[in-house]
């Protein structure tokens, strides 16, 4: 009781410190606009999805989302997206390193090529990839004798998702790498650290927040990807069928409630994962002493 009394007697401003002195005026206006804009652009359509999904009875909803085919599709979508994001973090960081640290002829060209997956219509990418990796295609033909099949397998899904996610990692790591003081690496060397120790203890920790951001973006993009995957995946139910495709199939059958129910499940899983990664990122940023 006494605790509550002291709480209520505290000035309101301290409970809700929304105004800090700023060089730019207009906190209220800009906050209002940002909330309105996000609401109109993001939250409203998402709310519509939830509303539509509510058209299903709870039993029907549950039956749909726990159907083995649904679960298999979700597993393919999120599993392949995670694998693709991991691959992108590794090779995207390497690409960024090469672009930032070395000077070679054609560097600017290579730099521009990185953005291609951004600009290319995903269907074009899908067609190109599937013809390349088909058993009679130039790359698929080489891999087939080794017993590796890419097109129309789970591996193909990963390849497509890796392709579209690459620029996210390169473009987030690149500026951080450019700002990274080379002196830190030299300092580590004078203190006796091997190259591997310098990379592991000095360079990677400095890049960690950027790598996590890149991972998040690549992952989020991959989860929502549709166009490029359907051409190379083969779309075999239970094996290479992705969740977005399942939604399109439901739409094709005019089962809007079913489609939105699947969308809701995807949204919730994606939101939980992204939130977790963001928390991890905040933690790693704090460790950098940026406070």
């Amino acid at each position: 009781m006494t605790g509550q009394a002291s709480l209520s007697s505290r000035p309101l401003a301290r409970l809700w410190p929304r105004r800090r002195p700023s060089v730019l005026p207009g906190f209220g206006l800009t906050l209002g606009f940002a909330v309105f804009y996000l609401g109109l652009l993001v939250l409203l359509p998402l709310a519509a999805v939830f509303l539509r999904a509510a058209g299903l009875t709870p039993e029907a909803f549950w039956a749909l989302v726990t159907h083995p085919r649904t679960i298999a599709a979700l597993r393919v979508s999120f599993g392949a997206s995670l694998v693709a994001a991991f691959i992108n973090v590794g090779f995207g960081a390497l690409t960024a390193w090469v672009l930032v640290r070395y000077r070679f002829p054609g560097r600017r060209l290579l730099d521009a090529v990185v953005d291609l997956p951004f600009a290319l219509p995903t269907a074009v990418a899908g067609i190109a990839l599937s013809s390349l990796y088909a058993v009679n295609g130039p790359l698929g033909g080489l891999l087939a004798p080794l017993g590796i099949k890419v097109a129309y397998t789970w591996l193909g899904v990963v390849v497509a998702l890796t392709f579209i996610g690459l620029p996210f990692v390169v473009r987030t790591v690149q500026p951080v790498l450019e700002d990274l003081d080379k002196g830190q690496e030299e300092a580590a060397a004078t203190l006796g650290a091997s190259r591997w120790q310098t990379l592991r203890r000095v360079v990677l920790p400095a890049l960690a927040p950027a790598l996590l951001t890149g991972f998040t973006l690549a992952f989020a993009r991959a989860v929502g990807e549709y166009g490029s995957v359907i051409f190379i995946a083969g779309n075999l139910p239970y094996r290479t069928e992705i969740a977005p495709l399942l939604i399109v199939i439901q739409l094709g059958e005019y089962n809007y409630a079913g489609a939105t129910a699947l969308a809701v499940v995807m949204l919730v899983i994606a939101f939980v994962l992204l939130l977790a990664i963001n928390l991890l990122q905040a933690w790693s940023r704090r460790r950098l002493g940026g406070v």
Binding site: Q184, E186, T190
Partner: peptide
């Protein structure tokens, strides 16, 4: 790495993390 020199850089080059 093996020269055992203590080097102090102009901008300190401390490890920020």
């Amino acid at each position: 790495q093996e020269r055992n020199v203590g080097f102090v850089f102009q901008h300190y080059a401390l490890f920020r993390h």
